[in-house]
């Protein structure tokens, strides 16, 4: 059963015994699955279950498999799942460069570490931003840094929690295609939660409706 990608097998979440969510899905590497639904339909509960951030009185049953690994017993930091929230949430006390280095594997040291950070910035058109204060960046720049911070940690899957809703319309399409492009290039299965049909349409993959 070593099928690659993110597999949700009869995933169920209850809150104090009350059913909140029931879902099965298979997200193949390089593919985007969109989850849509009105607020309160359990979209963020779903992401919490996959990330591993739900704690009692929430209860999760069913299986979550990532490249064949069962994630149930793993803490958030061992699941190797990257996440982008609606806000970029760059760590405000660290420079842009240190934000990027936060999740870089420890094996990269010294000059190699610096080079990886510089290359990531260059890849998204932010050359020379390493020493900047994140608070001085524009919304689109922050999101690009957040994306690269996530990818540098070499995740095995990517979750998107309405990551484009804070951007204005023309920025939005641009950043959206950047994120999808990068995720596809890295061969990541992507699970996106959104309430914007345009996001789902741009993703081009399967759309799951929660209600």
């Amino acid at each position: 059963m070593d099928e690659p990608g993110l597999i949700l097998q009869d995933l169920r979440v209850t809150l104090s015994g009350k059913p909140m969510l029931r879902l099965s899905a298979h997200v193949a590497p390089g593919q985007v699955v969109s989850v849509m639904g009105p607020s309160g339909a359990g979209k963020s509960t779903l992401l919490g279950a996959v990330m591993g951030t739900l704690s009692p009185p929430f209860a999760v049953s069913g299986r979550i498999l990532l490249d064949g690994r069962d994630l149930a017993a793993l803490p958030v930091e061992a699941r190797q799942i990257g996440i982008l929230f609606q806000d970029p949430l760059l760590f405000p006390h660290l420079s842009v460069g240190s934000n990027l280095a936060f999740g870089l594997p420890r094996a990269l040291r010294g000059a190699a570490r610096r080079a990886a950070v510089e290359k990531a910035l260059a890849d998204v058109g932010l050359n020379g931003f390493a020493s900047r204060d994140p608070a001085t960046l524009s919304g689109g720049q922050k999101l690009r840094v957040a994306l690269m911070r996530t990818l540098l940690a070499a995740p095995c899957a990517l979750l998107l929690d309405e990551p484009f809703s804070s951007l204005d319309a023309d920025r939005r399409a641009q950043i959206r295609s950047l994120v999808f492009e990068r995720a596809r290039a890295a061969g990541l299965p992507v699970l996106m939660v959104t309430h914007d049909p345009a996001d789902a349409q741009a993703a081009g993959g399967l759309v799951i409706k929660l209600d």
Binding site: T53, V76, G82, F91, G103
Partner: peptide, 11 residues
């Protein structure tokens, strides 16, 4: 969510 992000980066 800051903690979730940091955890997801392996911390």
């Amino acid at each position: 969510r800051q903690a979730t992000i940091a955890h997801s980066l392996g911390a």
